[in-house]
Amino acid sequence: MKRFKKIAVALFITLLMIQILLHFDYDETLYNTASQSYYVENGLEETSSKNLVTAIYLDYRLFDSFFEASLLLIVVTGIAFMTIKDEDML
């Protein structure tokens, strides 16, 4: 009885995913392209980088990257606190 239930759940999820993949069409969906057109037009002149991803996370959204980099220091501090067993290791 349990095995029958597991197989039924697996089949249901598989059929759901197949239906989603068949009916999803990228070219017909309507997105709001205001920020996309702004980045593509003015990205190179204002930031001087040919990689748009770098331009976005190092110039337009530097605030988020700043906090992400400082979070790594807090993680390393917490880990270093937990590993001191004898004083000459760290």
Binding site: T54, D59, L62, S65, I79
Partner: peptide, 27 residues
């Protein structure tokens, strides 16, 4: 000349990520 800012920031982020991962694994 304006590229200097991006290269410096990339170096800082790269080194911080590397040190974080290494210390996590050594523990």
């Amino acid at each position: 000349i304006r590229r200097l800012f991006l290269v410096l920031l990339n170096l800082v982020i790269g080194l911080k990520v590397a040190i974080g991962f290494v210390s996590l694994f050594v523990v």
